[in-house]
Structures are given as structure tokens and as C-alpha cells.
């Protein structure tokens, strides 16, 4: 996978560094600008794929910087700011910004917006994942083994997808719940247990036993 290069223009050191860590963990190449007088030259030189731009910067504010960048580049610009009046939003968008997110930002939303701007599709385009001779078809939403097939509900599919992505590792319940919440399924711990139980029943119908192991006090593992 070709890593996208993101430039962070933010004057708060801690936020800059943490944002960098976050984006590096998410699989991007990240550059930070420390000397703000050189911003323009730097961007000209490196031509990044995306710019995260803070509005309150020393010297020149983000809006002006944005319109300067727009004179020579069409790189997507995502504004990050503490101000959230409609005027700010309008200004950001009319000056050539592509999107606008307010502090304190919600991290999944931030990542989703970045993804959207980089026009990266859904995580991967493979439709089936196989593990221990069980196939998970993400598009059809089914589990199959030995020629037999069974349908999953939306929630069950997401759970299975997450487990298939973390094969061999123990997935804690809270991680699983959080993942589901990030994917528009808002369930609690108990409902998760119910869903896992249903998946196990379905697996049993396929003739598979003990595919999902419960690690007491830790979580699930496949």
C-alpha cells in the first residue's frame, strides 16, 4: 500500500506530536511544520497528499495561508480549529478548504474525514477472508465452510470482521464494543454477549465448534 503523506500545520506542540503519532499508527506518512515562516516553501517542496491546517497560527492565520497554498496547489486542506461559528466555517470553505473539523475532535470522525479526502475506499476491497477453513464473505454477509453457508446480521458481520482482522490475538470486549460504536452499531456489553452467543449457534449449525474462544476476563480469540 502506498502510504499517503500528510502535513500537519499546528502550533501547539503536544497536539502536533500526538496527532502525528495517531496518524502514523493509522498508516500514514506524516510531516510536521515547526518553522512557520518556511511553510509555503516546504509545501511547494514536498507536495503532500493532504494538509491539516490549524486556524490560529503565529504570524499568519490559517485562512490566509490556505488561500496562499491554493494559488499553486490543489492539495486537499482539512481545517482544524477551536472556533465553530458559521462564519468560520464559511470562511474556511470559501477560501479553498476542503473540509472543516472543530476541536476537540472526535478521533474516528477525524480519521474518517481524512480517509474521505484521500478518496481511499473501504479498508480493503477483498470480499472474502478465510481463517481456519472458514470463509467470511464481507459483501454478502455470510459465513461458509465445507460448502455450507449461513447468513449473518449486520452486527454479527461486524463482530466477525473485527475478529477475522485480529486472528490469533485476544480481542477485549471493550475494543469490540468500541469498534462497533465506530461503525454505527451502538450496543452494550450484554448485547455483545448475546450476539456472540448467536454467532456460536450459527457456527454450530455449520458444524464448527469452539471457533470463538472465550478468554475469561480478557476477551475473545479466534
Amino acid at each position: 500500500m502506498n502510504p499517503y503523506k500528510i502535513v500537519i500545520i499546528e502550533d501547539e506542540e503536544l497536539i502536533r506530536e500526538e496527532l502525528k503519532t495517531l496518524l502514523v499508527n493509522a498508516g500514514y506518512t506524516v510531516d510536521c511544520i515547526i518553522n512557520f515562516e518556511e511553510t509555503i516553501n516546504y509545501i511547494k517542496l514536498t507536495s503532500p497528499d493532504l494538509i491539516l491546517l490549524d486556524v490560529n497560527l503565529p504570524g499568519q492565520d490559517g485562512y490566509r495561508l490556505c488561500s496562499t497554498i491554493r494559488t499553486f496547489s490543489t492539495t486537499p486542506i482539512l481545517f482544524i480549529t477551536g472556533r465553530n461559528t458559521t462564519m468560520d466555517e464559511l470562511q474556511a470553505l470559501t477560501l479553498g478548504g476542503d473540509d472543516y473539523i472543530t476541536k476537540p475532535y472526535n478521533i474516528p470522525i477525524l480519521l474518517a474525514r481524512i480517509n474521505l479526502l484521500l478518496r481511499r475506499g473501504m479498508a480493503e476491497q477483498t470480499s472474502t477472508i478465510e481463517y481456519k477453513r472458514i470463509q467470511l464473505n464481507v459483501i454478502a454477509g455470510t459465513l461458509a465452510t465445507n460448502g455450507k453457508e449461513i447468513e449473518l446480521t449486520k452486527t454479527e458481520l461486524k463482530i466477525m470482521y473485527y475478529l477475522f482482522k485480529h486472528t490469533g490475538a485476544i480481542v477485549s470486549r471493550i475494543d469490540l464494543v468500541e469498534y462497533l460504536w465506530d461503525n454505527e452499531i451502538h450496543i452494550d456489553d450484554n448485547t455483545l454477549s448475546v450476539n456472540i452467543m448467536r454467532i456460536r449457534e450459527k457456527l454450530q449449525a455449520l458444524g464448527v465448534v469452539d471457533f470463538i474462544q472465550t478468554k475469561r476476563g480478557m476477551g475473545y480469540k479466534i
Binding site: L14, I15, L19, T21, K103, I174
Partner: peptide
Amino acid sequence: IHEIKVPITGIQLLCENNKTEIMRKIITQT
């Protein structure tokens, strides 16, 4: 309010990058 948002963002990012049980509770509080 705009100023207080900066350290809150900092806390959130710190917690997100070092996720543990305690950090989750800190995020809840923030």
C-alpha cells in the same frame, strides 16, 4: 472556551494514543 479546547484536544489525543483502562476512563471524563 476556544482556549480551553486546546488542552482538551491534547488530553484526548494522548488517551487515544495510549489506550488503557485508565485512559478510557479519562476520555469519559473529558
